[in-house]
Structures are given as C-alpha cells and as structure tokens.
C-alpha cells in the first residue's frame, strides 16, 4: 500500500518536473533563425583578466544595442583550451558567443587541442592590444636595444605568461630578429608579472599598456619600447619609442574580438554581425578601447577571417 502511494508520488513529481523543465529551458537551435532573447558569452579565462574585461564589455554593449540578456560565463583552464573546446561542442548554437583572443590562433599551433581557428564563426574583431617592454624604475636599461645588448653578453630574465601568449610571441620575435636568447620565468597573470618586476625578480617583461598604466604614471615601472608599428596616440604612452626606432623590427598585437560556434545559419551570422556593428558605433565600444589603451580595429565576418589567417601566419613564424 505504502509503496504504491510512493510510486504515485514520484509520478506526480515527474509530472511537475516536466513543467519545471519547461520553465527553466534556455532554448536550443531552431530550424529557422529567430533572434534569441538571451545569449551566453563564454570567457575562456578567469574573471578579472583582460579577456574577462573584454567579454563583459562586449556582453553589456550587445545588451545595449539589441535588448538581449547576455550572461557571461567564465570557463577557464588550459590557457583557454577548456573554453574554446566547450564552444566546439556547441556547434550550431545561435545563442552562444565567446570572447576570443590570441589563444584561438596560438593554441592549435602549440598544443594538442581538438579545435582549429577555422572551427568557429568569427564575428567581430574589436582591436589590437600591443605590448610594451617594461622594467623596474631602478633598472639600468634605458632602451630595448640595451636589453638586447645585455642579453648577448649575460643572462637576462624575462617574465612570460604561458607558452602561447602575446608575451611569449613578442619575446620569440625579438630573439629571432636579434639572434639573442632570453631566460624565461613563467607567471600566471599580468598582475603577477608586475609584482615580479617591482620586486626585482625578473629583469624585463612585455606587458599590455592597460596592465601597467598605473605603474607608469607613478614611475615605479618604466617602458623601454613599444612593439607597435607607430607610436601610441594615447597621451600617457606617446613618449614611448617603438621597437623599430631602436633597431628591433618587432611589432605584434594581440587581437581581441568575439566569435560564435561553427555551423550556425547565415541568418544568425548576419544577426550577430549587425549587432556587432551597432556596438562598434556605441560609446561603450570607444570607452572599452580607450580605457584599455588598445588600437581600434573593428572588422567583421569575412574580413575578420582574413585577419585571423594573417595572424596565424605570424604566430606560426614566431613560435616556429
């Protein structure tokens, strides 16, 4: 008797469960594209980093121009591999985006991952984030040329964050260009690298301007050169000479943008590109680029694909 009522009860719960599942669904791909009401922005790195900042800026920017609810999800791990692999598993999902950066191109080149840079649908490139070669205020180095000269004679220690990041690529490019070798100490984040420079644990380190602008202003750290084609237009950075001015022919930018999963419909791709274009015209886009001292370079869709191909060739050459 008792057990029968139990079964009935479980049946009742199951019925309720069906209703509940209906309420909490996130919706999956439909045959005909209908603009989603909510979307997810995957950030393949931890909260608080550069990728996270850019993912959140794009998410709130897209919310502003489309009226969507965009939830940010940090799927960190494996220098980005976890997040990109997750996106690979969401093929065809039209309500998912990923805040992309260099790892999209460099991970497939350096590591055994199951995705390639053409496994996804590139939507928008926001701009380029170049690196500055930084050193402590007390350092004897005045220019990047000094650093190269020193590296020819003795052990110069630089910090890098991961084997596939912009700092590793920049250091590799200098090594190839100048035929020198640097000792590398691996760190996990830009913040840690700044601390290492301040404490004198490493001699130099390539860092993005947004990571060091506070230290630059206070004078605790100095920039030796910028790995840009031309000098920065930002007031705080305009005095920093380019590497090329100092005889080092290295200019390399980490791109930041966002992509959608592979295999989405042409309509969905158009929808996201249009949203991206509206975002690029918004104040939020300009704010994001300026507060992070990046070079704006908004390209979309096929142009972005071509840009990625170029980047891949550069990275391939650098990581050799």
């Amino acid at each position: 008797m008792k057990s029968r009522t139990n079964h009935l009860a479980i049946g009742a719960v199951a019925a309720a469960a069906v209703l509940l599942a209906g309420c909490s669904s996130t919706g999956s791909s439909a045959e005909e594209f209908a603009a989603p009401t909510r979307a997810t922005m995957i950030v393949p790195f931890a909260a608080g980093g550069g990728s996270d900042v850019s993912g959140r800026a794009v998410a709130s920017g897209l919310e502003g121009v489309t009226g969507l609810t965009v939830t940010v999800e940090n799927r960190e791990g494996g220098a980005g591999a976890v997040g990109y692999s997750a996106l690979l598993g969401m093929e065809g999902r039209e309500d998912v985006l990923l805040a992309s950066e260099l790892a999209l191109v460099s991970l497939p080149l350096a590591q055994d991952v199951s995705f390639r840079s053409d496994s996804f649908t590139p939507i928008m490139n926001l701009g380029g984030d170049y690196a500055l070669l930084m050193t402590a205020a007390s350092s004897e180095f005045e220019t990047c040329a000094d650093v190269v000269t020193a590296a020819k004679a003795e052990r110069v220690v630089t910090a890098v964050t991961g084997a596939t990041g912009i700092d590793e690529i920049t250091v590799s490019l200098i090594e190839q260009d100048q035929d020198v070798e640097f000792a590398r100490v691996p760190y996990e984040s830009g913040g840690e690298v700044v601390a290492a420079l301040l404490g004198g644990h490493v001699d130099v380190a390539p860092l993005n301007p947004s990571e060091v602008v506070g230290q630059l202003e206070s004078g605790d750290l100095r920039a030796l050169c910028a790995f840009t084609e031309e000098r920065y237009a930002y007031e705080e950075l305009a005095a920093i000479p380019t590497a090329a001015e100092q005889g080092i022919d290295v200019a390399f930018a980490q791109f930041r943008g966002f992509i959608a999963p592979g295999g989405i419909s042409e309509d969905a791709r158009k929808y996201w590109i249009e949203a991206a274009e509206a975002f690029a015209d918004s104040e939020q886009y300009t704010d994001y680029i300026e507060s992070n001292m990046m070079q704006p370079n908004a390209v979309y869709g096929d142009e972005f694909v071509a840009f990625l191909d170029e980047t891949r060739a550069d990275v391939e050459a650098a990581l050799g």
């Binding site: 209703l19 599942a21 209906g22 669904s25 919706g27 999956s28 909510r38 939830t71």
Partner: peptide
C-alpha cells in the same frame, strides 16, 4: 541569473 540547463525535455517544451 545563472542559466540552469533545461535538458532535451526543456527544449521540447519551449
């Protein structure tokens, strides 16, 4: 606002 998965059933119902 954490999206809880609705499963296949949730997809069918929506």
């Amino acid at each position: 606002s954490i999206p809880l998965p609705g499963g296949i059933l949730g997809g069918l119902l929506s």
